[in-house]
Design a protein around this nucleic acid. Structure first.
Lengths: 248, 248
DNA sequence: ACCTCGACTTCTGCATACAGAATACTGTAT
DNA sequence: ATACAGTATTCTGTATGCAGAAGTCGAGGT
């Protein structure tokens, strides 16, 4: 029974409001997908998920709706849900969109420039360079994500932030190989980007960000070409198929 | 491998598959919101909607999830759903994002330029100009929407198309006054945009689109300043409050 | 051996039911 | 009159049940 009392220690929420189950299911499933425990293409059976997560089908369904609207799973109306399997073309398109949105973020951030924000950026940049120096891939990825997010926050455009975050989650899978591929250069570009933002030079900031994300995209394409399908578990069969009980 | 892969059976896509109830509810509610029959800020009670539309609460809930993820309603976890009431700042931000995405669309469309697509654009442009000539506001809005959509389609980027469509639906409310405000000039700009796309001049196309959407945004801001709240029904009370049932 | 037809299984879609949470109301005290 | 507390009520969140549709498997015909 899911009536398990959990110590409501999440602070991001309003005072003591229980996080809806659907949201926890959403989070859990997103992580299962990112970690490949739910493989791309896999058929998701509601009752199995319900059992696996210890809840009823209802919150599962609602979470699936959400995951669908963000491109994590595909819903075939009469049939079921499938973990979305992004093609190379699709990831490429996502990176193009991301490039456009982030270039706009940088432009607006430069127009909104503010000393405190620039300081945050510098700090993150330093963290990233440190990660490069110690060859810490995960650290690079993390600092990179935070830095980009910070730029978008500094744009002051909440809609933009939501959108970039959404796109970003969908391509997060692909950052690790990219970071491995061009870690050092990437952080030089970040430094120049911050210079432009600090100077309030909107065009330069936009252009620098665009070139930066464009190189990231190129890097992805090269990586993928060298390593076409990065350990994609091949559709890991849905469920043990109970043979029809032979009556005899 | 003696490929016994099912040949035609693969397209077993029933043409008359029954549209899921949740989707019809989604459509219906979106139209109710656009037509202001459900007013911004209004509290949506699931059971009332269910009764109004003649279905159970389940498809209502699923539709609400969808409407929430697209910004049509706000979901307050413990409490309920409310028709989203966009602020001026939010609409402005949406228009900024739209400008960035559409500029990218135009850029890509110019790179992908193709005679057949340009012909479609020209035709839509002619329709729009005809609508301007006959002072047909709705015609202008429709032709405008189709033209912009067409440009994004020509970009060849499906992700971009999805994203632009989503943003576009959220600002559709505001197109009519804008069209009324600057109908004629708008179509001159469209013509120049198409020229740039036809010429394959990506920078010009991008710049033209950006200036165009930027003027649209300015037009919105002016309009809104003249007419701060375009007939927003003020939160039309939720439900007749049944006095405590007087028993027998 | 291949294809077709038919029944079975399983799953989704939808409806209903129940418990807890949040709100709004009412009465009382200051 | 205002503020506060207690109570009542409504609504959401979640679980469960049921019917129909989609897919699958197997048998029989060609």
């Amino acid at each position: 029974m899911p009536s398990t009392e959990l110590p409501q220690q999440m602070s991001a929420r309003r005072i003591d409001r229980p996080v809806p189950l659907r949201e926890r299911v959403y989070q859990a499933m997103q992580e299962l997908i990112i970690s490949r425990q739910l493989a791309p293409g896999q058929h998701l059976v509601e009752s199995e998920l319900a059992e696996m997560l210890g809840v009823s089908r209802q919150p599962i369904r609602e979470a699936l709706q959400l995951l669908n609207s963000e491109g994590w799973v595909d819903l075939r109306p009469g049939y079921g849900a499938f973990v979305h399997a992004p093609t190379e073309a699709e990831v490429d398109q996502l990176l193009v969109v991301r490039a456009a949105l982030e270039a706009e973020s940088a432009r607006l951030a430069a127009l909104n420039t503010d000393a405190e924000g620039v300081a945050r950026l510098r700090k993150l940049c330093a963290q990233g360079e440190a990660a490069v120096a110690s060859d810490d891939i995960d650290g690079m990825v993390a600092a990179n994500a935070e830095l980009h997010r910070c730029v978008t926050e500094l744009s002051g455009n909440q809609v933009l932030l939501d959108m970039v975050s959404q796109v970003d989650r969908r391509v997060r899978w692909y950052y690790t190989p990219i970071a491995r591929h061009r870690g050092h250069q990437s952080w030089q570009e970040h430094a120049r980007l911050i210079d432009a933002i600090e100077a309030g030079d909107a065009d330069a900031a936009s252009r620098t960000m665009r070139e930066h994300t464009e190189r990231t995209r190129q890097s992805y394409l090269e990586q993928r070409r060298e390593n076409p399908e990065p350990e994609v578990a091949p559709v890991q069969v849905r469920s043990r198929r109970r043979r029809t009980a032979p009556g005899v």
